[in-house]
Design a binder for these strands. Structure first.
Length: 491
RNA sequence: CGGGAUGUAGCGCAGUUGGUAGCGCACCUGGUUUGGGACCAGGGGGUCCCAGGUUCGAGUCCUGGUAUCCCGACCA
């Protein structure tokens, strides 16, 4: 037992950390708070990128790239925005090093001080709006629908692999529109794109909603979000889409001439998801044996393990295994044939289980003799034998079934973790014993939300878009409320 | 940024009173093995976090630094 995982029950946080490292997704680096994403983990990110990128383009967006560095003055142009990010910015102050006096290394050359310091982007609204100013003159230039894939830096005090790192990878969409309505429609559209992707590709059920003013993006008029529920009962924000109003247009003086020839400020949105999604993926599906990956994102969908005694056995098994491998590959399935002689089958079984490969096919002499193979499902841990005839179609269907099954399992769990609370005692008790989302009334004031956070560490995760009007009393203050919101402790 | 802990082989750790730096896993070689993390035999691998100090002698004692982890504060 070389790679024993801490169980989820023993220590959920340690289970998560162990899993990220042992499944070879990522590791800590020599730089505080920054991770190395290893090939297996990066491969998942590439699949996320590929599908999202396709969806962005399908909805009319194009990719571009803006600089990593932002002049300090840009950041301060939008008051709420700078307030939100100032405390976590990395700043470049010099542009040259020199040999240290003792010749043992290098030191900053104090003579090479930048006239204007540069901020390493925590997000790109400012540099992008400074650029858009020159791109937009007329209503004919709108809408402007641009996305960029990039890294950003937010100097976090406490970091965790994928969930919160000082540097992370993400995409940020930045759009400009002629009307308020169109911008809001864009923000909502992209929220739906995210929800569709996260549910259908990542098999993570989400709740669509809007943020309370406290949790809103710095500089936004409205922040839409998708919220997911992790196995330990904590919520995780999986994606956000912001309606920015005219805040950035005014800050960066981005105006256009409308059809009547009158000048107007443009309306903006921005939206993003990050490598944090990989953290959500892990904490939604995985178990004490390791990762469980949805087939649509798994770097390896099917692994074939040959079993044999001696050379003759191997040759018989190898012919069959190789045939199956070629057939699956032709059918567009990502399949790996692990014919390494350096590890025993049992070792491989454990390894691929740890790495979350959805389907394992084992082929031994008995199977060759009976024209069958042994199939093992990662999601249910079931094993059974099936005929080699029609195997490719069988696998295709099974992959879809697994995708569906893990989503359903996650959805049932998520639904079971939504609890209504009508009194403060109930609210606190649910939070302490069960966790999850608590559906409760709130009087709508930032002060009350702040107070609840102080008392319980729970925040309003979102005001669900599908919330039904319902008269009630605020869980804390007893003041009137017209609908329920979702509280939870969150990542 | 406050409180606590820990830095010894790639990883996980032991190291007594200051006296030749060890164990497990991993790695390399050979052989036997192969349907749930094989076994035997042999082998390689060290700036004991860094810098000073005490001492005949420091992984061990003292001083300073530094890094990482945990708890808190902070965090769209």
């Amino acid at each position: 037992m070389a790679k024993e995982l801490t169980s989820r029950e023993t220590d959920y946080a340690k289970w998560y950390n162990d899993l990220v490292i042992k499944a070879d997704l990522a590791e800590n680096s020599g730089v505080r708070g920054c991770m190395v994403i290893k090939p297996y983990g990066y491969s998942i990110w590439e699949k996320i990128q590929a599908e999202l990128d396709r969806k962005f383009k399908e909805t009319g967006h194009v990719n571009a790239y803006f600089p990593l560095f932002i002049p300090k003055s840009y950041l301060s142009k939008e008051a709420a925005h700078v307030e939100g990010f100032a405390k976590e910015c990395a700043v470049v102050t010099h542009y040259r090093l020199k040999n240290s006096p003792d010749k043992k290394g290098v030191v900053v050359d104090e003579e090479a001080k930048l006239e204007e310091e540069l901020i390493v982007r925590p997000t790109s609204e400012t540099i992008i709006w400074d650029t858009y100013k020159n791109w937009i003159q007329s209503y004919r230039d709108l809408p402007l629908l641009i996305n960029q894939w990039a890294n950003v830096v937010r100097w976090e005090m406490r970091t965790r692999l994928f969930l919160r790192t000082a540097e992370f990878l993400w995409q940020e969409g930045h759009t400009a529109h002629a009307t308020r309505e169109e911008a809001i429609a864009e923000a909502e559209q992209m929220l739906n794109v995210y929800a569709d992707f996260v549910e259908n590709f990542m098999a993570i059920p989400v709740i669509k909603g809007v943020k309370s003013p406290n949790e809103r993006f710095a500089g936004a008029e409205e922040t839409y979000c998708i919220e997911a529920m992790m196995q330990d009962g904590k919520a995780l924000q999986a994606g956000t889409s912001h309606f920015l109003g005219q805040n950035f247009a005014k800050a960066f003086d981005v105006k256009f001439a409308n059809r009547e020839g009158r000048e107007e400020y443009v309306w903006a949105t921005s939206w993003g998801v990050s490598t944090r999604l990989i953290g959500a993926l892990i904490m939604t599906h995985s178990d004490d044996n390791g990762l469980v990956l949805p087939p649509k994102l798994a770097p390896i969908q099917v692994v074939i393990v040959p079993i044999y005694r001696g050379k003759e056995d191997f040759e018989n098994v190898d012919v069959v295994a190789r045939g199956i491998f070629e057939n699956l590959k032709k059918a567009g399935i990502t399949v790996k044939y692990d014919d390494r002689d350096t590890h025993k089958p049992g070792w491989k079984f454990n390894e691929y289980e740890l790495k979350g490969v959805p389907i394992r096919i084992a082929i031994g002499p008995k199977d060759v003799e009976n024209n069958q193979v042994e199939i093992a499902r990662r999601d249910t841990l079931q094993k059974f034998t099936v005929s080699q005839i029609g195997l490719t179609d069988y696998i295709k269907i099974l992959l879809e079934e697994i995708q569906q099954n893990i989503f359903e399992k996650a959805r049932k769990f998520r639904d079971s973790m939504i609890t209504r609370a009508d009194t403060w005692d109930e609210f606190v008790q649910i939070l302490e014993t069960k966790g999850g989302f608590i559906s409760a009334h709130w009087d709508g004031t930032p002060e009350t939300e702040e107070k609840i956070k102080e008392l319980t560490k729970a925040t309003i995760r979102c005001i669900p878009l599908d919330a039904q009007p319902e008269e009630g009393k605020c869980i804390l203050t007893g003041k009137p409320s017209s609908k329920r919101v979702f509280f939870a402790r969150a990542y």
